[in-house]
Computed example of a mutant assay.
Amino acid sequence: MATDGPVVQVRGEAYREVPPELARFAVTATARDRDREATLTRLAERAAAVRVLLDGSGPTVARRETGDLRVRPETRRSGERVVAWHGSVTTTVTVTDFTALGELMLRLADQDQVEVAGPWWELRPDSPAHREARHAAIGDALLRAREYAEALGARVTALIELADAGPADRPMFARAAFAGGGAGGGAPELELDPQPQTVQAAVQARFTISAPVLD
């Protein structure tokens, strides 16, 4: 694109740390038995117990997704003779109420042959924090252009080009694992500290400036 007069090119950046909006964790129910049908029956019962607890959590659970169902035979090293069957099913749970998160995770971990891992802290894909960071990056680019122009005794006159140049945001996470054993009794209290999320944005911008004063 042809332009009249001098041009300044700058990079604008913004970096923010904001509280997370979502927490995800995984609940895995397992079963093992020499008999395949017994393994499947136990696995179904334990998965159902997990569902009952999640059903009773009310609005604490915003979303849950069941996947990663595995059933596999255990064989002897020398041959294909099956000595046991292993089964597992994992449910990913999304929570927005962090005050009840620790209690819910420990209640799930207190179930027989259930493992809980997480949480992973995130922002919503449409979080206002992303928009605010992009706006701040544009403001930073304009400020830098004006500073360069001022140093030359000039002023910014027009925007020629603006392009996004920021890296993708990376969710922060903390991982903990709890293996349930059905010990009975009330689950202990667990307080979790939500990890701040890093939001970054960067732009490349080109501006025309008035004639510099170089005297």
Rank of each mutant, 00 (worst) to 15 (best):
R81A: 12
L53M: 05
T99P: 02
L104P: 02
G102T: 07
Y148S: 05
G67N: 09
R64P: 02
R134M: 12
G87Y: 01
P73I: 10
E45R: 04
A117F: 04
V89A: 10
W120P: 00
G67K: 10
R76G: 09
T75Y: 05
D112A: 12
L159H: 02
R64S: 14
P119L: 14
S88F: 04
E45Y: 01
P119I: 15
H86S: 08
R46T: 00
A129V: 10
L104W: 03
T96Q: 14
R76T: 05
L142V: 15
W85T: 03
A117T: 14
T90V: 09
E80D: 15
A149R: 00
V95W: 08
W85R: 05
G118D: 02
A154C: 09
E74D: 12
V114H: 01
T157W: 03
G118Q: 06
H86E: 07
R63E: 15
S57A: 15
Q111C: 11
W121T: 06
H135V: 14
I160Y: 04
R144Y: 03
E45A: 11
A109I: 02
R107K: 15
R77E: 12
R155M: 09
L152F: 06
R63I: 08
T92K: 04
R124M: 11
E65G: 05
A158T: 05
R131W: 07
L143W: 07
A158S: 13
R46F: 01
V116I: 08
T91H: 00
R107V: 07
E150Y: 05
D126I: 05
I160A: 13
V95S: 11
L106I: 15
R81S: 14
E103M: 13
R131M: 05
L106D: 08
P73Q: 13
G87H: 02
L104N: 07
S57N: 06
A141I: 06
A154G: 08
V95G: 03
E65C: 08
T94C: 09
V82N: 10
R76Y: 03
L152G: 06
E150G: 11
G139F: 06
V114D: 00
R63V: 14
E65F: 15
H135T: 06
A44P: 00
A137V: 11
T66K: 02
T75C: 15
R77K: 13
